[in-house]
Design a protein around this nucleic acid. Structure first.
Lengths: 333, 333
DNA sequence: CATACTAATTAAAGAAGTTTAATAAGTGGA
DNA sequence: TCCACTTATTAAACTTCTTTAATTAGTATG
């Protein structure tokens, strides 16, 4: 129970930056004395900082607290074929440093080790690392990774933990991306469902959140939508490549929109999500309107999700950032 | 917290029929004294019954307890077009009475009221009712119900609560069915995913469980798989009707299996469930093997779920039974 | 600048569990 | 049948949080 209280306090202070004990007690449904004692202990430990006094509403002014940015740092690492992107966050969740380095997936673990060493040496306070990788992940280990032989069945988590003594977490890229989008979309109901569609280098992929939690599937293969049988003879991936390789601009667009609309209907007729997000590099707002029209020819409008376009890289990075911060707040687990 | 303890005790006693206080404490991770006091109170209240003494393992023999069957009864009601099926369960979960009556969906609420009156009058102890209906349900209310005008947007829950003073719950038929199947399948991981496919009178429907909980969707339209765009010009429903209306036995089967295999791949490539269940009235075990083969032409075998056939009505009824028992154990909510 | 008031903090009492110790109720063999 | 032993049950001490009361530190106004 105690650790849950600490965690709640961290979340509140992260969310509101600066709060009084009373506010935190209010927002968490934990009693004032409990919060008060926990915060005193956290100040003692250097995790929380007394900032100053809040404004008065007629009586004594309350002390305000915030997270101690210097308590520790966490790294979010995005591993792509062509680059590795490192971001360092302080305990308040602020970006304190970022760097793009060469991709390691083709080179192998040695290069990753080197890069991580550099990062760690520059940051004595580094405790936590979160890695995003373009492959299925299970228990910190990737598998079925496409084309990166050096990392076949590589366990990133134990690698980071043992080589660097860090608390580590590994997440699939699309799962991190939906999480990122989901965290920002302020859904009224606590357990919404969102599907994130992305056209990657190795065909399309999706990240899926149902009832508020990421869907990983029985064998961590969720979201491998390339294989969707959306036409008599072609699957989703083939439909897309066919569309994208069409010369005629008009026709190309038409084929693309039609494929995506079939994708949308597929989800509308199964998990019936609140939102489907598309990467805005491929589809404009106008396209989405067109897609919706096409969908309505296949399924009643009531069934259709909200269609949204968003910036993939931004959502992905944001997802990794949130995961990193969450990991700092509960180093264990 | 206190109500959670009571609930846990009920679940254990339902599962093991007869237990000692020590066994329950063991299985629930609640301390012995707490269990002991709670059980004493429940015996006092007539909810639990002291049965006798367990066998000795060298020392004093423990008292054993079980649920008091007479504490209350709950009704599971399956409303179909052609019949209403009423089942009464005692507090131990035993069936004490069942009856098939004429269907009410076309007739209207008056007939339902009459039938319920009969049931209630024969059972003074009736406290809880669970209804299964072939339509989307939200907050006890059906909507978009097909062809039963008398029940358009009818709120079954408030109807039962107000007319009969019962604690009521309403569930969509396919959701109850997957729940029923899921409860029986002893999944190792706590949060498995299962899809239940059924060919109903109004086209195919599916019940979906992801990460251990029923998927209802943003507008309670989950599982409306008729609309799946599985071919260039036909959706899943159309493919099925086309198949089923084909004269040639051989060809008919082939078309059916092919459609279903596309359905299976659709789920394998999205939520990647552990199991897909088909009604055994349409598909034999041999058919499932054939379907698997067809699937493997579309997607790697690793991605495919276990394919199982099962008795729909049995799973549905079992699901309603479990919901009824669960509802008795927590009348509120 | 003193006094009445308001709100923050601290302290004490209470509730609800858990852990540990004590007691009661059997079992089984000499 | 008695006694050593095992196990169930009950009681007591302790944790941890909440609720309620008391105290303290300010604010604001005449």
């Amino acid at each position: 129970m105690g650790s849950m209280i600490r965690h709640q306090i961290c979340l509140q202070l992260y969310k509101h930056v600066e709060s009084t004990k009373a506010e935190i007690a209010q927002n968490t449904d934990i009693s004032f004395p409990t919060i008060s004692k926990a915060i005193d202990a956290m100040v003692e430990a250097g995790e929380v900082r007394l900032v100053g006094l809040g404004k008065s509403s007629g009586g004594r002014r309350p002390s305000t607290y915030s997270l101690n940015a210097a308590f520790m740092t966490g790294a979010a690492v995005c591993l792509e074929r062509d680059f590795s992107f490192y971001q360092l966050f302080d305990y308040e969740g602020q970006l304190i440093f970022q760097k793009k380095l060469p991709g390691v997936l083709e080179a192998g673990p040695e290069l990753l080790q080197k890069q991580l060493q550099t990062i760690q040496q520059a940051n004595s306070n580094l405790r936590v690392i979160v890695l995003g990788v373009p492959a299925p992940v299970k228990n910190g280990q990737v598998f079925h990774i496409q084309g990166y032989e050096r990392f076949r069945d590589f366990n990133f988590q134990t690698f980071c933990e043992q080589q660097f003594g860090l608390s580590a977490k590994v997440e699939n890229d699309m799962n991190a991306t939906v999480s990122g989008y989901y965290d920002r979309g302020n859904y009224k109901q606590d357990f919404a469902s969102v599907v994130y569609l992305y056209f990657g280098k190795n065909g399309p992929g999706a990240g899926i959140i149902v009832n508020g939690s990421v869907v990983r599937g029985s064998s961590s293969f969720s979201g491998e939508i390339s294989f969707l049988p959306l036409s008599d003879v072609r699957n989703f991936e083939q439909l897309l490549t066919e569309a994208l390789s069409t010369k005629d601009e008009q026709l190309r667009k038409r084929m693309l929109l039609e494929s995506v609309s079939r994708f949308v209907v597929t989800f509308a007729a199964t998990v019936n999500p609140h939102t489907i997000v598309c990467s805005n590099t491929e589809l404009t707002a106008g396209d989405l309107i067109e897609i919706r029209k096409l969908c309505e020819e296949m399924i009643p409008a009531d069934y259709l999700p909200e269609l949204v376009s968003s910036d993939w890289e931004q959502d992905y990075f944001y997802g990794l950032q949130q995961l990193t911060i969450a990991k700092m707040f509960k180093e264990d687990e």
